[in-house]
Simulated scan of single mutants.
Amino acid sequence: MPAYWIAHVTVTDPEAYKGYQSLAPAAFARFGARFLARGGQSEVLEGPEAARHVVIEFPDLAAARACYHSDEYRAARAARAGAAEVAVVIVDGL
């Protein structure tokens, strides 16, 4: 059963964020991630505003968790530190 990352992102330092953008794809590729939504037009109906909303599908919950905790994604998160406000939730699919 698939699982999803749902992320809400506001980039505060676009130049520093490029480090994250160069590192994160390796983690996503390793764990079979598929982007369903990334940026684009959005409308917040309830809750805090974020500039970007991202939905990433993984083969299963174990892959979604493993990706987040992988060495590749840890490096990407470290590169992103101070460059964005981020909230990430992992959700089990139906």
Results as ranks from 00 to 15, higher is better:
residue 3 A to G: 10
residue 3 A to N: 05
residue 3 A to I: 04
residue 5 W to L: 06
residue 5 W to T: 03
residue 7 A to S: 02
residue 7 A to Q: 02
residue 8 H to E: 06
residue 8 H to W: 03
residue 8 H to M: 05
residue 10 T to F: 15
residue 11 V to D: 03
residue 11 V to A: 01
residue 12 T to E: 08
residue 13 D to V: 07
residue 13 D to Q: 10
residue 14 P to D: 08
residue 16 A to Q: 02
residue 18 K to V: 15
residue 19 G to K: 01
residue 19 G to I: 00
residue 21 Q to K: 02
residue 22 S to K: 12
residue 23 L to T: 00
residue 24 A to F: 00
residue 24 A to L: 00
residue 26 A to V: 06
residue 26 A to N: 06
residue 27 A to H: 08
residue 28 F to D: 05
residue 31 F to H: 15
residue 31 F to T: 12
residue 32 G to P: 08
residue 33 A to T: 01
residue 34 R to F: 00
residue 34 R to W: 01
residue 35 F to K: 02
residue 36 L to P: 05
residue 37 A to T: 13
residue 37 A to R: 10
residue 37 A to D: 11
residue 37 A to G: 13
residue 38 R to H: 15
residue 38 R to I: 08
residue 39 G to N: 06
residue 40 G to E: 05
residue 40 G to V: 03
residue 41 Q to T: 14
residue 44 V to F: 15
residue 46 E to M: 10
residue 50 A to D: 00
residue 51 A to W: 05
residue 52 R to M: 11
residue 52 R to N: 11
residue 52 R to K: 15
residue 54 V to Q: 09
residue 54 V to N: 12
residue 54 V to C: 12
residue 55 V to A: 10
residue 55 V to H: 09
residue 55 V to G: 07
residue 55 V to N: 05
residue 56 I to H: 09
residue 57 E to N: 05
residue 57 E to A: 05
residue 57 E to Q: 09
residue 58 F to M: 09
residue 59 P to G: 14
residue 60 D to I: 14
residue 62 A to R: 14
residue 62 A to L: 11
residue 62 A to N: 13
residue 63 A to Y: 10
residue 63 A to S: 15
residue 64 A to V: 10
residue 66 A to N: 13
residue 66 A to D: 14
residue 66 A to Q: 12
residue 68 Y to V: 02
residue 70 S to W: 08
residue 70 S to Q: 10
residue 70 S to F: 11
residue 70 S to R: 09
residue 71 D to F: 04
residue 71 D to L: 07
residue 71 D to I: 00
residue 75 A to F: 12
residue 76 A to E: 00
residue 78 A to T: 03
residue 79 A to H: 08
residue 80 R to P: 04
residue 81 A to G: 12
residue 83 A to Y: 11
residue 83 A to R: 05
residue 83 A to I: 06
residue 84 A to M: 07
residue 84 A to V: 02
residue 85 E to C: 12
residue 85 E to I: 06
residue 86 V to I: 09
residue 87 A to M: 00
residue 88 V to E: 00
residue 88 V to T: 06
residue 89 V to K: 14
residue 90 I to M: 15
residue 90 I to R: 12
residue 91 V to Q: 12
residue 92 D to I: 04
residue 93 G to C: 05
residue 93 G to E: 01
residue 94 L to S: 11
